[in-house]
């Protein structure tokens, strides 16, 4: 069965809303954005965390966000000013978010399924990224872009 047949954009949106509501309980609203991918292309830095799912369905779930948004999330989780955060802290925070999204996706899949540890990369977006994904949901949070991508294994880049 394809991952994207079971996990649609509405589910991704729901999980992302809960994730953001939990991280920043009092300020900001996560707004679905069709332009998030384009904004990510333009962002000066970008962080992508991917977890792979294997078992009844195979594929990956990725969370990408601009560098400033990654730093804001890390600052909240570590309870530190952004200036005091090292790069590893930011990487770990975004990785944990991808892990939470992936874990929630996994809970909706027929067992058995397993989830990998997140792999976090920084750098620019591939230009065909939106097209190779089976499902892409973009968001805007506090003026910064974020993107959740679901890829079926057969479509994932080798």
């Amino acid at each position: 069965m394809l991952l994207s047949e079971l996990i649609g954009p509405e589910t991704i949106e729901e999980i992302a809303h809960q994730l953001w509501a939990s991280l920043v309980p009092t300020e900001g609203v996560l707004v679905p954005s069709a332009c998030a991918l384009a904004h990510l292309h333009r962002a000066s830095g970008r962080i992508t965390a991917a977890v792979s799912i294997s078992g009844s369905c195979d594929g990956t779930v990725e969370l990408a966000c601009s560098e400033p948004l990654g730093r804001a999330i890390a600052a909240f989780m570590f309870g530190l000013p952004e200036a005091d955060l090292d790069e590893a802290a930011v990487t770990d925070a975004v990785g944990e978010l991808a892990n939470i999204v992936g874990g929630n996706v996994k809970s909706l899949l027929p067992p058995p399924t397993s989830l990998s540890i997140p792999i976090v990369t920084t750098g620019p977006t591939a230009s065909d990224e939106g097209r190779t994904a089976s499902c892409a949901v973009g968001f805007d949070f506090l003026g910064e872009p974020a993107l959740v991508l679901v890829r079926d294994a057969s479509l994932a880049p080798a």
Partner: peptide, 13 residues
């Protein structure tokens, strides 16, 4: 928890 960020979040609370 294996995530440093999650450990920090829980610890702070």
């Amino acid at each position: 928890d294996d995530s440093r960020a999650m450990r920090a979040l829980l610890t702070n609370i």
